[in-house]
Computed example of a mutant assay.
Amino acid sequence: MKAIRLSKVPVIAIVDDDEAMRDALSELLQVMGFSCSAFDGAAAFLAHHAPGRFDCLITDVRMPGMDGIDLHRRLRALGSTLPVVIITSAPDPATRARALDGGACAYLAKPVDDSALLDHLRSVLGHDDGRDEQLDEEDLPGG
């Protein structure tokens, strides 16, 4: 089996009005080898968004102004295919259905389970967790 070096560090955008949650997610993802940019709301994120700038978005549902599901809809309306993970402190089936029907790759309750979040990120990023490591070809999609 031939090993392949993966060196591109995925950039994850975190949008949450709760500073402690932004900091906790940023620290977790950085320890796991990802690069992060954190934003305190949808407007701040949209001001910095450009196609290809981020590899995934993690956003809270409940935020002042535009909520996370509306942010996801706005991105889709702009033609974005950016993978989106929705997190919430108040999970309910209707909101979960809206998020997933809208194309979110995951809907996770706070406090977010670290391993579940990382599994979802690895899945949407094609098994690349951001670290420069070797993977066997059979571990890669189509391998």
Rank of each mutant, 00 (worst) to 15 (best):
D101K: 14
T59I: 04
L108C: 08
S37Q: 14
K2S: 15
A47V: 09
C56N: 06
V84S: 14
V9I: 09
A3G: 03
E137K: 10
Q134V: 11
G102F: 00
T59S: 14
A90H: 15
A97W: 06
L125D: 05
R62T: 13
L100C: 03
E27I: 14
G103T: 10
G52Y: 05
Q30Y: 02
S123Y: 06
D17H: 10
I4Y: 01
M21E: 15
T88D: 10
L121P: 04
G52M: 05
A50L: 06
L125P: 07
I12W: 01
D67P: 02
H127Y: 05
I12F: 01
A97T: 12
L100Q: 07
A90K: 12
R5W: 10
I12D: 04
P141G: 08
L71V: 13
P10V: 05
V84D: 13
Y107H: 10
L140S: 00
D128T: 05
L100V: 09
D101W: 05
L25F: 10
G103I: 12
V85I: 12
A109I: 08
R73H: 07
F34K: 02
R73S: 14
D23Q: 11
S37R: 08
P83A: 03
I58C: 05
M1E: 14
A116I: 08
S80L: 05
A109V: 11
R76Q: 13
G103M: 07
L25K: 01
G41C: 11
G103V: 03
R122D: 14
G65W: 00
D70Y: 07
C56W: 00
V31A: 11
S7N: 10
D40G: 12
G130H: 03
P93I: 08
P51F: 01
D55C: 08
K8E: 15
A94K: 12
E137Y: 05
V15I: 04
A38E: 03
A106V: 01
R98V: 05
L78Q: 12
D129H: 12
G33P: 01
A116D: 15
M66L: 03
I4N: 04
V61G: 09
I87S: 05
G52R: 00
D114L: 00
K8P: 05
I86E: 11
L140P: 15
L29H: 01
S35Y: 08
D139H: 15
G68K: 02
D119S: 07
D70K: 04
A116C: 10
L118F: 04
H49V: 13
P51I: 02
K8C: 11
G130T: 12
S35C: 13
V124D: 13
A106H: 04
P111K: 01
D60Y: 09
D119Q: 12
A97R: 11
